[in-house]
Design a protein around this nucleic acid. Structure first.
Length: 275
DNA sequence: AACACGACCTGGTAGC
DNA sequence: TGCTACCAGGTCGTGT
């Protein structure tokens, strides 16, 4: 692929973050002790004092690994939560030997036996944050039962923003990013420029089903990819229909996929299929 | 109040 | 070859 940032399957939206969580849950037993914490890139932590964060984390136990939208939540024995956001290029993974770390390792939690959890992020846009509770102001989890067409309809009525921009707003639906917003709108055959409050009930039904369907497919693909890196087999990968495919034929009608700018970001869509 | 936009970051690439 | 300019996008702070 032409653009390096379109490393498909690595851009951390809900499905990729979920697979990171599964990876960690399989390797970090509940109750694991944090022997030592290291923050080697001060700018990534909140609160802003790295030494204080290191001190607070050291000696804590990881009681549970959760997820909310794109946030990874390491629940600590103190009751506080270490929230990890991967942003664009971040990654969080279990290391069997914490002494060997890649250059982009920005922080790590040493666990017993010199194992650990590494936060790596070449661009250092990701964030580690100590929280009193789960992040507030996030919308519903799209893969939970509470996310219904009625919930989506109610939220959409309150916004005149283009539906694509609306979907990127984490207060509306948690975990959808630029790729899956485009893919969901393609699957629902809705024009990304359509104002959110102009979607009719038919549109809402299709969009709801598309969001859930796209994310479920991608969760499965992302997990497969993460479990067996380098062992992709054809067809296992989530099939992108429009994202990053400017000028290539639409899978449905053959007309070229278009790219426009919305809210400072690229939107890919088929001008013929998406009305 | 709702929306727009720049800043934050770095690596890769296009263009000269 | 080596340089610069630009672009990727999630989120937040600031401006309109």
């Amino acid at each position: 692929m032409k653009c390096s940032t379109v490393r498909w399957g690595l851009l951390p939206e809900l499905p990729e973050v979920e697979s990171v969580c599964r990876h960690l849950r399989e390797r970090v037993p509940a109750g694991s002790l944090i022997v030592r914490a290291a923050i080697v890139r001060p700018g990534i932590v909140r609160p802003a004092d790295p030494a204080a964060v290191e001190q607070e984390l050291t000696g804590q136990r990881i009681t549970r690994i959760g997820r909310r939208g794109k946030h990874i939540l390491l629940h600590l024995s103190s009751g506080r939560i270490l929230g990890v956001h991967l942003r664009m290029t971040g990654n969080l993974y279990f290391s069997p030997d914490i002494r060997f770390r890649e250059a982009s390792a920005r922080a790590w939690l040493e666990l017993p036996g010199r194992t650990g959890i590494v936060f790596a992020d070449p661009r250092a846009l990701g964030r580690l944050e100590l929280l009193d509770q789960e992040p507030a102001s996030l919308g519903p989890e799209p893969l939970e039962a509470s996310f219904t067409p009625a919930v989506l309809a109610q939220a959409s009525r309150a916004s005149r923003a283009p539906i694509k921009v609306f979907l990127l707003d984490q207060r509306r639906v948690a975990g959808v990013g630029n790729i899956y917003a485009a893919e969901a709108l393609f699957r629902a055959r809705i024009n990304p420029r359509k104002p959110a409050n102009r979607l009719n009930s038919n549109n809402i039904q299709r969009l709801h089903a598309a969001i859930v369907g796209v994310l479920e497919d991608a969760v499965q693909s992302a997990y497969n990819a993460y479990s067996s890196p380098g062992r992709f087999t054809e067809g296992e990968e989530f099939a992108v229909q429009v994202y990053g495919r400017e000028g290539q034929p639409c899978a449905a009608c053959g007309k070229p996929v278009r790219r426009i700018r919305q809210g400072g970001r690229s939107t890919y869509f088929c001008g013929h299929c998406q009305r």
